[in-house]
Structures are given as C-alpha cells and as structure tokens.
Simulated assay, not measured.
Amino acid sequence: MVVISTVLSDLQRVISAEGRALLQRYNLLVPLVEQMITAQAIAAVEVSAKGLEQAQVELLGQQGYEGLEQWPELLIKLGRPEKEVLDRLRWVVRRQVFMRERFAAKAEARFLERKNELDQVVYSVLRSKNGFLARELYLQIESGESNFADLAKRYAEGPERNTNGIVGPVSLTQAHHALADKLRVAQPGVLLEPFRIADWWLVVRLERYLPTTLTEGVFDRMCQEMFDAWISEQTTKTLSQLKR
C-alpha cells in the first residue's frame, strides 16, 4: 500500500536503526508511526474556508468564547502563533473528512453490531454479603415498607451506598455479565429478587433503559473507531516490515 511504503521510506531515510531502537525503548516508535500514517493518509484532503472557520468556531466554544471576533483573544490565551493553531485545526478537519469519506458506508453496520454495548441503563442496586439481610431488604422494598434509597444508604456495602443506590447512566458492558444479563431483560420499575454474584447478594431494580440511536455524534464515533482500528493495523504492518 502506498501509505505504508511511503512511511517506511521516510523512516528508513531519516531515522537510523539505533534511533529506531531508542524510540522503541521509550515507547515512542508506535505513536510516531501512527502520526506518520495519519499524515500520509489525509494529506490529499482539501480543507475549505468554511470547514476551517467551523473548526475555529468549535475551538472557541470549547474554550468558553462566543464567536470569531474573539479569535485574537483565544490566540493570546493559548500562547501559540496563529499559523500553528490553524495548521492543527486543518489536521483535525482533514482527519474528520477522511474518516467520514472512508468509513461512512460501514458506520451503520458497525452501530448495529455494537448497539447492545452502546445502550445505557440507570439502575438501583444494593449489595450485601449477607443473603438473609438481602432478602429482608428486598421484602421491605417490595411491600412498600421502605424505599430503595434509604435502605441503600443504610445497608449497602458497595460504592452505591454514597449514591442512594443509583448507578448510571452506564453501558451494560460496565456491569458484571450476570447483572447485565438480568438488566437487559428487566422491566423498568420492577424489583428483581435477590441473586448472588461471587460473594455478594444483590437487590436490583432497573430504573431506565436508554437505547442508543444513530445520531450524528454516534455516527462519527463509529467512523472514529474504524479509523483507529485501520491506523493500528497499518502501523502493525509498517513496523513488521521495518524489522526485516
């Protein structure tokens, strides 16, 4: 591939074997090659005046400014020459355009593959190492004698004690697989009977299920993930050829 051959040629031309070994020792070779491959891949992407202006507006907003008229103030705050800042913004725009052009056709399929991982939940949980206590607390909540938040504050033995038992919004992938399986099929507001995971007894109630939709932000995230995987693959191939 042209990208790999060009990067290989540049590495071999400007960095000696000893230099590459030194970069490798300090874990700098991989990020260097990643940056070189990215630069080579996006080099031909054109940045329009409108695209650059939008990137400036976004940067201003991130820094707490309201419009382009405050651009000189931002440059003073950043302490960087305007050319340096604009060159970096052009890099960001080129990479974004490249990601969308190359991976947009596969973004929806990746989203559908990962949807279960992207969906989020809010749930109440109360953990105890005492199974009899967990059962008693479950019965109190189920009967309406006590509420979940008060009992979690008093009896929970996990970090949920500090949040009134509430966890989330979080991805189901962040929960133990056994808990995730139960939450995935639970009905919001329905208290689950105590169940055991390792040394813990859990009382759980799903509060809200938050399905992810393919918004523009999620679409860009799918493109970014595929781009990152592609860069990683190209980097691995480049380094394997560099060692020959």
Rank of each mutant, 00 (worst) to 15 (best):
F148M: 11
A41K: 12
T173P: 11
R94G: 02
V122K: 00
T173N: 10
R102L: 04
P211S: 13
L68T: 14
M99T: 01
R127S: 10
V93N: 02
I231P: 06
Q12E: 15
V7D: 05
L139I: 01
E160L: 01
M36S: 08
H177M: 08
L29I: 00
L23V: 03
L192G: 10
A175N: 09
L151G: 04
V93H: 04
G51A: 12
P188L: 05
V218Y: 02
V122N: 06
E193S: 14
A186M: 08
L11D: 08
I76P: 04
V92L: 10
Q62V: 05
N147E: 09
V7P: 09
E207T: 07
T212G: 05
N164V: 01
P72E: 15
E18K: 02
L133F: 02
E145V: 11
Q70L: 08
D119Y: 04
I4E: 14
V47F: 08
A41T: 10
D119M: 02
L202A: 04
A175E: 14
E84G: 01
R90W: 08
R110M: 10
A175H: 05
T238I: 00
E58H: 05
V45F: 04
L183P: 04
R88C: 12
A17L: 15
H177A: 07
L52Y: 14
V203F: 04
L206D: 06
L52V: 06
E18M: 07
R244E: 15
Y155K: 03
D87Q: 10
T173E: 08
S171A: 14
N164I: 00
V85H: 02
L191S: 14
Q12H: 14
